[in-house]
Design a protein around this nucleic acid. Sequence first.
DNA 1: TCGTAACGGATTGTGTCCAATACTGTCACC
DNA 2: GGTGACAGTATTGGACACAATCCGTTACGA
Lengths: 268, 268
Amino acid sequence: MADQPAHTGLIWRERPGRGRPTAERPTSPAADRADAVYADLRRAIIEQSLMPGDKLPEDTIGESFGVSRTLVRGALTRLVADGLVEQWKNRGSFVASPSLVEAQQVFDVRRQPEGLVVERLAGALAREHANRLHGHVAAEKRFHGKEGPEAIRLAGEFHVLLAELTGNTLLARYVSEVVSRSSLILALYSRPHPSECGASEHAEIIEALIAGNAARARYLMDHHLGAVQERALLPKPGAAGRSLKDVLVRYAEPREPLPMASPTQRRA
Amino acid sequence: MADQPAHTGLIWRERPGRGRPTAERPTSPAADRADAVYADLRRAIIEQSLMPGDKLPEDTIGESFGVSRTLVRGALTRLVADGLVEQWKNRGSFVASPSLVEAQQVFDVRRQPEGLVVERLAGALAREHANRLHGHVAAEKRFHGKEGPEAIRLAGEFHVLLAELTGNTLLARYVSEVVSRSSLILALYSRPHPSECGASEHAEIIEALIAGNAARARYLMDHHLGAVQERALLPKPGAAGRSLKDVLVRYAEPREPLPMASPTQRRA
DNA sequence: TCGTAACGGATTGTGTCCAATACTGTCACC
DNA sequence: GGTGACAGTATTGGACACAATCCGTTACGA
């Protein structure tokens, strides 16, 4: 995520042409700090360093990053637009806690843009693109069996990468957003599962795309998303070690943050 | 658009339960002013009172609405997320001017969520919902022949209304966003066309939904969107009264705002 | 013991200030 | 006549300070 997708990464559009006037200014590049706050916060959420429901106080975050509340607020506003953060009037910002219903809706919606992606890409994959995809899957497989945050992030980034290859900026943006939201949902609802078998499913999709079999690619993608959804939303009913809170959280519809329980802060 | 769609209208989520503590406070309700700025700006853009490329100076807008730049900045940030406004570092904000390529992409993407909408709604339309839809179409027909901004707005709101009826918040949000972007594109590229025949197409879709014919509804929606796209992006090549600028604007890829030409301000 | 009301602390909401940057117009020079 | 550099001006970027709101606690009364 070094250079992240254009849609979500940058507030300010670079001016086209006339190459940057002052190349590489040594001091902190002003507006980029705002982007840094946004990117770091976003990544912390997706990697589950910040869990759903965690409080995000403006001043605390500002101190951590060495910026004022103004910039933090801007970053939070953008994260709200991404659906990763919720804001409550006079109470502050929290990492979003999508309800079970909202989670279902996310997966419901997600199949549409992702279906379009594979349709566009089937048979239209440049050699170099295919290589990048294979490389990504290889990276995923290195995490096979583990279930750390990197694994979740990598799995999501595969879908984003796929979408970006279509060249359709808006499409890439939508996919990126639903993927982010899915990561959040996984953090909230999914039980630890032994092995993330997503990587091999990803590989299958790539094969179908290279073969130019649009129908099969769409079928595979649909199945893959269905599998992810199932893993996320249908944990074993009688699983041990399930706390009351874990159960109840699924039924709290408009996810009001718990007033007291919120830890003062969490750092990535 | 009195009470606009939840997703885009409110920064702050209302606290659930415990009915509002201080009912109807007389003074301006603080955060609502920020929402007002956002909503009015958004509407001004969609109704084409503000045209693509128009400059949006923070202080001028602030004066117009009687708020400080802080609130304006927040509203602009949200409009950026909606794709209605572009920001350029140290140059300010402008009404977005999607390129022809981006416009194509918007319509390309748009069919997906809208297809899902009619699929979900086919045969699942409550009587009251059907009535609301019919009422809306009736309102549209009142503008038959005219081509004012209200007509464009109403046509767009039909799609948003449809999406909201699915009950899927995220889906409604996506549709709302692509509809907004489409309005912008219509403002940029479409030639005045004699009669907006969209209303009757909308009526046909409603009939198919009531009949529970999902396939036909999806077909109709697809065709409808195709028709809109064609009207928007394929004007008569030899149309008279076409200025050089009108032509060139279609080929400027990364839409940098013209440094000089921007009118100092436009008021809605 | 429970319910209600008031107080204090903490956090956010908003406005305003100063600095940095880019654009525009003018002038000198080639 | 055209190109380049320079200074003035306007606008934005960011930070800070004050005010408003809300939460949690405590004290009081039934």
